[in-house]
Amino acid sequence: MRYAMVIDTKKCVGCSDCVVACQTENNVPEGFCRDWITEVVSGSYPNLELELRSERCNHCEEAPCVRCCPTGASHVVEGGIVLVNASECIGCGACIASCPYDARFQHPDGHVDKCTFCHHRLKKGQLPACVSVCPTKCMYFGDLDDPNSEVSQLLKDRKYKTLAPEAGTKPHVFYLI
């Protein structure tokens, strides 16, 4: 099993519902967020192009944060989800510095925090909070190892990209373009 998230940039309107849903679901402390919206404007007037992306931890296959963690607090669980064990985390900041996506932060309690793909909801058979609330249904979640899953089908049919593939992290959040 290999979990992945597929986000359709053509359908995303940047409403930030995913951000609020995550903050509520995961009790993210005020002033912090585990996911966020990036707006990219490219080109020159009048030929401008707008891309909206809901971004988060990419749950990389080659996760630099897991590699550099000195205690093993950052670890990979079934389905390739990268998690942080708060009671093993010393708050050294190495994983934060190692992440090309700046997806990690220091929780006010001291340990490092980030997106978990809503691991606790997956165990109950539910979708991640961000995916479940998306009003334009631009976010998809599923198993890449299953060729019939929605995410596998979308990546087969549509053009897609990942963020900073040159960082060599093999991210598992895909953006349909």
């Binding site: 940047g14 930030s16 951000v19 002033g31 912090f32 967020c33 966020w36 919206i37 990036t38 707006e39 990219v40 404007v41 490219s42 080109g43 020159s44 909206l52 934060i96 700046d102 990690r104 932060f105 220091q106």
Partner: peptide, 17 residues
């Protein structure tokens, strides 16, 4: 020209800007 910005108001201490 390419301009990227967080529109969901991300300003995490010690990470942003």
């Amino acid at each position: 020209m390419q301009e990227e910005l967080f529109t969901s108001g991300r300003n995490i201490p010690n990470i942003d800007p």
